[in-house]
């Protein structure tokens, strides 16, 4: 009897705490959504109501039809998508090398990758600008893709390495004895087994690139090549009074990142677990 009472109150506490976390995590997002569907005339009078008495999609129509957001959105999708694919390719190779080879300079590489995580990135803006402008890489999406790829490779390498560590070495050795070269074994045996890891890395990098603001702001000055965050920020300063439209734009910016994240978060935990078991 006693133990069931204990477990009931424990369960109550467990669910109570989880409910708190869910509300804490979702409330700000919910508020974003709520303001974005509140018509302008109700914005102040119903400032702290939980749902407007007369929801409307007017802000969304405006943002989609009368602003540059569709263009920003397209730019962001191109930049984040290409970055995610490139980083995953590059990090799959280096993560594989870290997991499977012992080579001179490996510790230096690990050190280098760790130290890059400490850079105040602000400091790199001016030098990168100077390096890129003669190459025509400023004001271009390609330039952004290159920068984002470099910034994300170190963490993605560690992530991919932990996934590769979870796959027994025997498998590619068997493939090599079956007649495959190492690269072919990597491609046909190891990579297909690392698909969850690939998905996690893709998703992680996509979200990171999707939210990057500093370099998007500094390397790109013409509107045609601006990404969503820059567009949103310029929106904030331009129409600082129009909360509804800003939040509608914000909700739109959230959608791809959140979708991607919902798909991959499970693999993220798995991937880190696989690595942890080994280390």
């Amino acid at each position: 009897m006693k133990s069931s009472a204990y477990s009931r109150s424990y369960r109550f506490l467990h669910y109570g705490l989880l409910a708190f976390y869910v509300i804490f995590a979702l409330f700000p997002l919910y508020w974003l959504l709520k303001v974005s569907v509140t018509p302008n005339d109700l914005l102040y009078s119903e400032g702290i109501r939980l749902w407007p008495s007369r929801p409307s999609l007017a802000h969304y129509t405006f943002v989609l039809a009368h602003s540059d957001f569709p263009l920003f959105f397209k730019n962001s999708v191109i930049v984040s998508g290409s970055t995610a694919v490139l980083v995953t390719l590059v990090a799959a190779l280096s993560g594989y090398a870290m997991s499977r080879f012992d080579f001179r300079g490996k510790m230096w590489l690990v050190g280098l990758m760790l130290v890059t995580q400490m850079f105040p990135l602000v400091m790199l803006v001016a030098p990168i600008f100077k390096l890129f402008s003669p190459l025509g890489l400023t004001n271009s999406l390609t330039g952004l893709v290159i920068v984002y790829t470099a910034f994300n490779v170190p963490f993605a390498t560690f992530l991919m390495q932990s996934f590769f560590d979870g796959i027994p070495k025997d498998l590619e050795e068997a493939a090599m004895i079956d007649g495959a070269s190492r690269f072919r074994a990597f491609q046909q045996i190891i990579l297909p087994l690392t698909l969850p890891g690939v998905a996690a890395t893709l998703g992680f990098v996509f979200t990171a690139a999707w939210s990057e603001l500093l370099f998007a702001l500094m390397l790109v000055s013409k509107a045609g090549a601006s990404t969503f965050p820059v567009g949103l920020l310029s929106f904030v300063s331009k129409f600082s009074v129009d909360f509804g439209q800003m939040m509608a734009a914000g909700v739109l910016a959230l959608i791809p990142a959140c979708l991607f994240f919902l798909l991959i978060q499970r693999y993220l935990v798995q991937g880190l677990t696989a690595g942890a078991v080994k280390g």
């Binding site: 050795e173 068997a174 090599m176 004895i177 079956d178 495959a180 070269s181």
Partner: peptide, 9 residues
């Protein structure tokens, strides 16, 4: 290389 040795394991 292992693949050229024609052995099975």
């Amino acid at each position: 290389a292992p693949k050229d040795r024609d052995i099975a394991m």
